[in-house]
Design a protein around this nucleic acid. Sequence first.
DNA 1: TGTACATCAGTGAACGCGCGTTCACTGATGTAC
DNA 2: TGTACATCAGTGAACGCGCGTTCACTGATGTAC
Lengths: 221, 221
Amino acid sequence: MDAASPSSEPPRSSYHHGDLRASLVRAGYALARAGGARAVTLRATTRRAGVSAPAAYRHFAGHDELLRAVSLLALADMARRIEATQAEVTASAPAERALALLDAVGRGYVAFALDEPRAFDVALFAQLTMADALHPDAAGDTGRTAYGLFQEALTGLVGVGLVAPAAAELASVHCWSVVHGFAALATTGPLRLTPRPELDALAAALVREVVDAVTGARARR
Amino acid sequence: MDAASPSSEPPRSSYHHGDLRASLVRAGYALARAGGARAVTLRATTRRAGVSAPAAYRHFAGHDELLRAVSLLALADMARRIEATQAEVTASAPAERALALLDAVGRGYVAFALDEPRAFDVALFAQLTMADALHPDAAGDTGRTAYGLFQEALTGLVGVGLVAPAAAELASVHCWSVVHGFAALATTGPLRLTPRPELDALAAALVREVVDAVTGARARR
DNA sequence: TGTACATCAGTGAACGCGCGTTCACTGATGTAC
DNA sequence: TGTACATCAGTGAACGCGCGTTCACTGATGTAC
């Protein structure tokens, strides 16, 4: 245990590393969690991985490509969080279950943002394309990305007739806006000093409201 | 007209500048609009203002303070946009007018973000405190900041009985989340390639929906 | 099984760059008498 | 009105820093015979 060591990686047993690419992405992600996107420099990342800076060029075309890989890992981490939230859903009646699954997407998204504000920032920082949002490297344990899980939950609601097909696009934008906006306000915006339990309660209420709004559930109650 | 000149400021007639502080903030804002927060370096800003770098230290403690002043100007610009949108409201019946004024805040906020995505980023980039959000330098032409205009519109709805006082906080967070989230998705997120007219239509529909939701207007129709 | 050799995955030194900040300075301005 | 002088608001050179990237290199690995 060398406390002065800047590296979180175990010492290499050989000159060759084995899986430097993955180590670099993990090192970059650790930096991102601690210091946001700005902290993910190529030099800091290689330093943390215990390797010289030019070594990164064996695995990435340059800094941009490294940062993109780190962003995808952050997205994958978010996907895992959403999967975990969905795993707690117990409802079995189709309509009830479909509602609960979308609700879980929203709560998981916000929970990830609150737990890992810097990682959240990095996940969304990179100018994401739709291709990135569905990239295999951004997938969680079930092979689906955060965006994929979201679309799937919405499709489920259409399937059980709670969202009209024609209303799906607006519903999608509505849900995502609320959840993303709240996450932004609560992590880097004016709500950032609000105590966590209060934020959790607000998030739960908001997600509930928006799911109700897009499914017309309010009118039915 | 010297096309090669990096400066947008008129040439100085004297050694002393006159109002360098304001010129620097304007130069920094121009850089922000073009290149985002990253572009607002102290050196680039002084260069653009046609002045040596150390000159900035006569007016700002350092780079951080300059960037904060630029952020406040961006917020003021946003406030002006909201004021302009509100100025078009013609309704005179109190309830109808209160609804229209909040609606205008939301539409103005999104319109600013879509027109000036980089400035929007800078306005929200600086870790804003509530004090900043109400700072005089962030005020528009009527002396109120974007946040002030928003709170005022909400208070108006409480005044005419469309929002219960106890529900005001959640309503505030709800409105702001939707609008801010949509702006983020539409400027740096996955909706950034969507054509502008479509975004405008989406924004109008979303703002309408959220104002309805927080006032219970949907139930009344 | 042993050896020659090509390939691979790292190293260490160096580059140029723009950054924020400091310093001693100087020219312009304004005030006191 | 004229002059001495303090104050103010700039300048230009220099600093150290960390960055991304390049280069020639070397030690380790794997393959052909």
